[in-house]
Nucleic acid binder design. Structure first.
Length: 475
RNA sequence: GACCCCGUCGUCUAGUCUGGCCAAGGACGCGACCCUUUCAAGGUCGAGAUCGCGGGUUCGAAUCCCGCCGGGGUCACCA
C-alpha cells in the first residue's frame, strides 16, 4: 500500500488570506481529499514582528468560510513555528555536529559590502565561504550556515514543470540559524515538512527558486525528498503581481462584497486547473476530480467578471433556505430589518436570485420589500403618470381590495382582466404598479412582488402613488 | 544584472507528453435576435486566436528542435 498523502498549507500570518494563498490552500486541500490523504494547516509565524494573532484568526476564518477543513493544525498545539523552536534547534545542532553546517561570524555589514560589489560587477551574490573552514567557537556570536557542495547541480523534479536544473554556481551556503538564534524560513520549512511527513509540497511558483536550497537541506538532514508541485501565480489585470492596487484581494473582501463561498471556490479551482470543458464545480466535484496533471504552467489573471458570473450561478443553484440565511447579514449591513418570517424571506430571494451577482446586490434589490419608495423616478413618472394614471390606480386599488387572497396567479388574472377591459397592454398596468411599489420601472415579476408584499402594503403604496399623481397635476 | 519559470480569442482554458481527428473547441465578457409584465435569467446566432516572433525537422507542427522577443519570479541574518 502506498504511503498516505500528506500535504500542508503554510501561510504566514502577516495579513489576511489573499486569493493566491486561498488557491494554494484549495489545491492542497483538493489533492488531499482526492487521494484520501491528510490536509495539514501550519502557521509560519517565525517573523514575530509582522505576525499577529488577529491575522491567524482571520486566515482560519477565511478557510472555514470556503469550507476548506484541515485534518491537522490549529487549535491543536504544535502547528505553529513559534511552538516548534526546540525542534529546529535540535536539527541545527545535529547538522553542526555532523559537519553539514558551520558557524559564521561575518557581520551583516561586511556581507552587505560584498553584495554591493558583486552587484556592481553584474554578478549574483554568493556567500564567499569565509568562515567555512574556520571552526568559529560557540562562544562567539555567530550564525549557522549550511555547507553546500561547491559544484554540481541540484535537480527539482516538479510535478507541474518537469525537471528543473539549478547549477551550484547559483547556490551558496545559506543561513539556517541567525545570530540571534532564530531559525530562518527556508530551514523551518524543511524541518517542518520533514517532521510532519509531508509527501507533496504544493505551493506557489515563487518558491521554485528556493527549492534547490531546500533540497540541499533535506539531503544534509538525511531525509527523503517530498514531491514538489509549483503552481502558477495569480496576476492582476496588468499582469503584475496581484495587489491591493487591483482592488479586493483578500478572501474576506470578496465575502464582504457578497460573493458566495461556492463561487469563490469554483472560481479559484478553475484558475489554473481544468477538467476538460467543465466550468461548474462544487466543493465535492473539486475533491473528486482535482489532479496536478491538469494544473497549467502559466500565470493567470484574476477576472472579477467571471467570479461574479459564478457567484450568480451558485446563488441561483442554492437551496432557498440557505440563500435566505446567507442574505441575512447583508440585509443588516444595508440597514434593512431582519425578517422574522424566514420562509417569506426565502420567497423574496427566489424573486431576486436570477438578478443578483452578489448578496450585496441582492440586499440592495430587496430594499423595496422593506421600505416604501423614498421618491419616484422622474423618468418613470414622466412616462407612466399620464392623464389616465389616476383612474387606473383607482381601479387597481378597488379590484385588489376585493380580492380575498393575493396569490400571484390571482393577481395576474386580475391584471389581465382589467387590461383587457381597459383595452390597454398588460405592461402599462404592470409598470404603473412598479412605479407605485418601487418608485422605478424595474422589479422582479410584479404579481409575485404584490403577493409577497401583501394586501395592506400594496394598497398603501398604490394609494400613495395615486395621490402623488394628483399633486403632480395629473388627473 | 545573473539564474529560474512562463507565452493558444480581451480574460480563464481544451488540445502540446503519445505530430495528422484543430483552416484550433468550451467558458466569462461583448454584440444581435428570440422569449417576455419591466429588469434579469434562459435560448439561438455572431464578432473575437495567422496557437509570442523567426528559423529548422517532417508528406504534415499549436504540438518536436534551435534562436530571439516579451512577461513573471528568485537572488536577505523577510516569509
Amino acid at each position: 500500500m502506498p504511503e498516505p498523502v500528506r500535504v500542508r498549507f503554510a501561510p504566514s500570518p502577516t495579513g489576511h488570506l489573499h486569493v493566491g494563498g486561498a488557491r494554494t490552500a484549495l489545491f492542497n486541500w483538493a489533492f488531499a481529499r482526492r487521494h484520501h490523504g491528510v490536509f495539514i494547516l501550519r502557521i509560519e509565524d517565525t517573523d514575530r514582528s509582522r505576525s499577529t494573532e488577529e491575522y491567524i484568526e482571520s486566515i482560519l476564518e477565511a478557510l472555514t468560510w470556503m469550507g476548506l477543513d484541515w485534518d491537522e493544525g490549529p487549535p491543536t498545539a504544535g502547528y505553529r513555528q513559534t511552538e516548534r523552536l526546540e525542534i529546529y534547534k535540535a536539527q541545527a545542532d545535529r547538522l553542526l555536529a555532523e559537519g553539514r553546517a558551520y558557524r559564521c561570524r561575518c557581520t551583516a555589514e561586511a556581507l552587505d559590502a560584498l553584495r554591493r560589489e558583486a552587484q556592481q560587477r553584474g554578478e549574483t551574490f554568493r556567500y564567499p565561504g569565509t568562515c567555512r573552514d574556520l571552526a568559529v567557537p560557540a562562544s562567539e556570536p555567530s550564525a549557522l550556515r549550511l555547507r553546500i557542495a561547491a559544484d554540481g547541480e541540484t535537480v527539482v523534479e516538479d510535478a507541474i514543470h518537469g525537471r528543473v536544473t539549478f547549477d551550484h554556481t547559483q547556490l551558496d551556503d545559506w543561513i539556517l540559524v541567525r545570530t540571534d538564534g532564530t531559525p530562518t524560513y527556508n530551514f523551518c520549512v524543511v524541518v517542518d515538512d520533514v517532521t510532519m511527513e509531508i509527501t507533496h509540497v504544493i505551493r506557489g511558483n515563487d518558491h521554485l527558486s528556493n527549492t534547490p536550497k531546500q533540497i540541499q537541506c533535506y539531503e544534509a538532514l538525511g531525509y527523503p525528498l517530498p514531491a514538489f508541485a509549483h503552481i502558477p501565480m495569480i496576476l492582476g489585470s496588468d499582469k503584475s503581481r496581484l495587489s491591493k492596487r487591483h482592488g479586493a484581494t483578500s478572501v474576506q473582501a470578496f465575502r464582504d462584497a457578497g460573493i458566495v463561498p461556492e463561487a469563490m471556490l469554483n472560481y479559484l479551482a478553475r484558475l489554473g486547473w481544468s477538467h476538460g470543458d467543465e466550468e461548474i464545480f462544487s466543493r465535492d466535484d473539486i475533491a473528486r476530480h482535482f489532479d496536478l496533471a491538469h494544473v497549467g504552467q502559466a500565470a493567470a489573471i484574476f477576472d472579477r467578471a467571471k467570479l461574479e458570473w459564478l457567484s450568480m450561478h451558485w446563488i441561483k443553484a442554492m437551496p432557498p433556505e440557505r440563500l435566505a440565511a446567507q442574505l441575512m447579514p447583508f440585509l443588516d449591513s444595508a440597514g434593512l430589518p431582519a425578517p422574522a418570517d424566514r420562509a417569506w424571506l426565502a420567497r423574496v430571494t427566489e424573486t431576486l436570485r436570477e438578478r443578483s451577482h452578489t448578496l450585496v446586490e441582492m440586499a440592495e434589490k430587496a430594499t423595496f420589500y422593506f421600505r416604501r419608495p423614498a421618491a419616484y423616478d422622474p423618468q418613470a413618472t414622466a412616462k407612466f403618470w399620464t392623464g389616465a394614471a389616476h383612474d387606473r390606480y383607482a381601479l387597481l386599488i378597488k379590484r385588489l381590495e376585493a380580492q380575498a387572497d393575493l396569490h400571484p396567479a390571482t393577481v395576474e388574472a386580475l391584471y389581465r382582466e382589467l387590461a383587457a377591459q381597459l383595452e390597454v397592454k398588460l405592461v402599462d398596468l404592470a409598470q404603473l404598479t412598479r412605479v407605485a411599489i418601487t418608485g422605478t420601472t424595474v422589479s422582479p415579476p410584479i404579481f409575485e412582488v404584490v403577493s409577497l408584499l401583501g394586501k395592506p402594503e400594496t394598497l398603501a403604496r398604490l394609494r400613495a402613488a395615486q395621490s402623488a399623481t394628483v399633486n403632480r397635476g395629473s388627473r
